[in-house]
Design a protein around this nucleic acid. Structure first.
Lengths: 270, 270
DNA sequence: GCGAAACATTCAATATATAGAACACCATTC
DNA sequence: GAATGGTGTTCTATATATTGAATGTTTCGC
């Protein structure tokens, strides 16, 4: 894996079979699984390889691939008979990014903070309680950097941002507990301690994770509101804990201020 | 439209019906059409609106949307019953970008050239003879800029890059003619002149478009090879023709040099 | 250069995704 | 406050997408 900050590991592929069963449009479930598999693979794949990996019937797999190729979501090399992701996915992603003003407005703020503190900054969007996705990133460019990529996914409740999502989301404790128990930390907090941290997060308006998710790495996260209800975005700072030192206070202030300003621009209530 | 450099206009939506007929996996055709429609729309849409726009049966449309939502390619607001693109498309795009070293390697070159000449620079990938897609972009940041966005699509044979694709693609003249006739330029060249320009492009290793595609805008494009065969990528410079003036020569040299260096890194033949 | 394995692809029977009507649920409007 | 037009959603018969075996097609080993 080329991702220094680990994202969730690929789920057991045999889940595809179960998902297909319940769906009223199984072809789409299969198509999505194929797209994800092709994305995961670092080389183009043939029909058989795809079908075997996902537990699909080869002929069905072929028809799905042809339909995807027709839509330019998948490329087909007529010589090698191999399939790969095609640039069409990029077009969709561009439209998605354009649809949400957060993605445009967050970037300059992230750039400035990354520059000022020499850190990696992220803009993150929560997708329900399942996970969050990195939608914007800025790096200072100097020295070592912790890096992740736009589009990377993480469990929704992990680390500092997870505390923000939980703290301001107004979810029942039982629901949080169920999700919490599935998280994997380097230094897992006890659920009671974590709940106490949520209260603190609510009180101070931001969350901090000092080496619990990843040893030695400090993460600071502040929620961004777009309207009433629960926040779906957050600004995140990631740095080596030891290197941050006494700058941590200033970073927290700057992050909260930026998140507040952004909430204002997006028309979000407090 | 928020795109100063015009991309192809959305195709007649009634084509969906025809495409669905011929496919062995019509659900996927429908799903792709829905995703594109949602991308095009600047607001979330309801089931009926989507179905009507694409000529689909509402119930079928609902099932497709549910499947897409299950795959997190589409978001569903339970309160308003509206659907929109979801962040999952971004995850796919990230994987696509990572798969091709061109996307990583081109960026620093584009940055440098954009800075040096104060222009907008693009990395472009051809998708057959249908169109090309912007996969990387750099802007100088100072003054007025012609802008487009990553993921934008253009007809494959248009402008300077189109000449590169045609010149080095080794396509039959009849095929080129058919595509050429569908292009829309501000100042369309005659086919014979265009063919002559292709010969010149082959000879000098790059192509120039001085106000033909868009009046007043000069485009310079140099092909990038990844292996043997036809080039699929190109580096592109876009600037106001009048402002370029005598820098054009230096720009051409720098662009060709960068494209050559990139071809070398990618293991492309001459 | 031959045989055989592995592959992509086609084909026909059937399980099932889909179409269209019926239903339920809001909002407005009279 | 009943009626109307607009939603989203369920239901069921049928057209059809899917399946698994059969057929070409390539690739590999000997």
């Amino acid at each position: 894996m080329s991702n220094p900050i680990r994202a969730r590991s690929p789920s057991p592929v045999r889940k595809v079979a179960a998902a297909v069963k319940d769906s009223k449009a199984p072809a789409i479930t299969r198509a999505a699984a194929i797209l994800r598999l092709l994305g995961r693979s670092d080389r183009p794949l043939g029909v058989q390889a795809i079908a075997k990996e996902l537990g699909l019937v080869p002929s069905t797999c072929l028809y799905v691939l042809r339909a995807l190729a027709e839509e330019e979501l998948v490329s087909f090399d007529a010589d090698t008979k191999r399939y790969a992701l095609e640039a069409g996915v990029l077009t969709l992603a561009r439209h998605w990014l354009r649809r949400d003003p957060f993605n445009d407005l967050a970037q300059p703020l992230l750039d400035r903070l990354a520059q000022r503190f020499g850190l990696t900054m992220l803009g993150v969007q929560a997708v329900g309680l399942d996970h969050m996705i990195v939608v914007a990133m800025a790096q200072s460019g100097s020295g070592f950097q912790l890096s992740t990529q736009i589009g990377s996914r993480f469990p929704a409740l992990i680390s500092a941002t997870g505390r923000c999502i939980a703290a301001f989301g107004d979810y029942p404790e039982a629901v949080l507990k169920a999700r919490f128990d599935q998280l994997r930390w380097d230094d897992p907090p006890a659920f009671e301690d974590w709940m106490a941290q949520l209260r603190q997060t609510r009180a101070q308006g931001f969350a901090v994770d000092e080496g619990q998710y990843i040893a030695g790495v400090t993460v600071v996260s502040a929620p961004v509101w777009k309207g009433a209800g629960r926040p779906v975005h957050a600004l995140v700072a990631i740095g080596i804990g030891a290197a941050l030192g006494r700058e941590l206070g200033a970073l927290q202030d700057a992050l909260v201020e930026a998140a507040g300003a952004l909430s204002g621009q997006l028309g979000g209530g407090a």
